[in-house]
Simulated scan of single mutants.
Amino acid sequence: MAQSSYFVPPTAKWPIVGSVGMFVLMIGAANWLNQGSIGPWLLTIGAGIIILMIFGWFSEVIRESRASLYNAAVDASFRQGMIWFIFSEIMFFGAFFGALFYARMFAVPWLGGEGTGAMTNQFLWPQFEATWPTHGPAELGGDFQTIPGLGLPLINTLILLTSGVTITIAHWALKKGQRTALLLWMIATVALACLFLVIQSYEYVHAYQDLGLTLGSGIYGSTFFMLTGFHGLHVVIGTIILIVITIRCAFGHFSKKDHFGWEAAAWYWHFVDVVWLGLFLFVYVV
């Protein structure tokens, strides 16, 4: 039974560890993007620190949960915290979708001479045509080709949608107490998540090596890799979470009525699915 008083956790070191990891990761990414030699190393170290923080923090919360330190009020606070976290993630991706929308619907037409951009187009880039995708005025981004939406992106879309189905079936199995079915469907979800990451990695290599599509390919290249790259990072994080939850399922940590840790992971994964649908539509197809 959970305790009746509200559980207040002791001072945790993991937020500090995570902040250090994020700082090192940021410095490494900035250095790497500016062709620095130490960037990849710092990026790897920062990612390692963050992964250590995730597993360390997870383990503490799991121990507290298994010790029945949480009550209904704590459970409600967890749910509220997860809702606000997903809301912050929606705002995060909304900013990048907004940048894509602004560049495509306002900035590019303005540079092409529409509206108040007539003078800019006439005197600075008279040859610029306001077409999308674009590598910028004066072809600053260099020639590139886009990735057809009906190729690998469509396959990845089907994979993520299928993973949303498998994790939903796993939820049904959990609520019915069917442990074997729960494990099988969770393993299937993790496998689909890993397959998505493999295909996206191949897509990135193909874009850089064969299509000339890079972060430097004008506004299209930068928004393409920022949106798909950050989504890919969220898939990596979600996959780690799913692996941990699957292991916990194997050890019988969740019951029919007490399994918010599992539900939080499912909420996050469904959010990742929905974001990808937006990416597929507005980045690859439209």
Rank of each mutant, 00 (worst) to 15 (best):
M1F: 11
S5Q: 14
S5I: 13
F7S: 06
V8F: 01
T11S: 09
K13V: 12
I16P: 00
V17I: 14
V17N: 02
S19D: 02
F23G: 11
F23H: 04
V24M: 05
V24Y: 02
N31F: 11
N34F: 08
N34S: 15
G36N: 09
W41K: 11
L43E: 06
I49Y: 03
I50P: 00
M53D: 12
G56F: 05
E60Y: 02
I62K: 14
R66M: 08
A67K: 10
S68K: 12
Y70M: 10
A76V: 07
F78I: 10
F78Y: 13
G81D: 09
G81Q: 10
M82L: 11
M82C: 08
I86Y: 03
S88R: 09
I90K: 01
F92C: 00
F93N: 00
G94A: 06
F101I: 09
A103V: 10
F106G: 00
A107C: 01
A107V: 14
V108F: 00
P109V: 12
W110I: 08
G112S: 09
E114Q: 14
T116M: 14
A118S: 15
M119F: 13
M119T: 15
F123C: 07
F123Y: 15
L124P: 00
L124D: 10
W125S: 11
Q127G: 06
P133N: 08
H135S: 13
L140H: 11
L140F: 13
G141E: 07
D143K: 13
I147P: 00
P148G: 12
G149F: 12
G151M: 11
G151W: 08
P153H: 09
N156R: 06
L161S: 10
T166D: 10
A170S: 15
W172Q: 13
W172C: 07
K176D: 09
G177E: 12
T180M: 07
A181R: 11
L182G: 00
L184A: 10
L184R: 15
L184F: 10
W185H: 09
W185S: 02
V190E: 04
L192T: 07
C194E: 11
L195T: 15
L195S: 12
F196K: 04
F196S: 02
Y204S: 05
V205P: 00
Y208P: 01
D210L: 12
L211G: 02
L213A: 07
L213V: 09
G216T: 06
G218A: 07
I219T: 12
Y220I: 02
G221M: 02
S222H: 03
S222N: 09
T223Q: 03
F224T: 03
F225Q: 08
M226T: 14
L227M: 08
F230L: 12
H231R: 06
G232W: 05
G232V: 07
L233H: 06
G238C: 04
G238L: 02
T239G: 03
I240K: 01
L242G: 01
I243V: 15
R248S: 10
H253D: 15
F254V: 02
S255V: 04
S255Q: 09
V272A: 10
V272M: 07
D273I: 13
D273L: 14
L277H: 05
G278F: 12
F280K: 04
L281T: 12
L281E: 05
F282N: 05
V283Q: 01
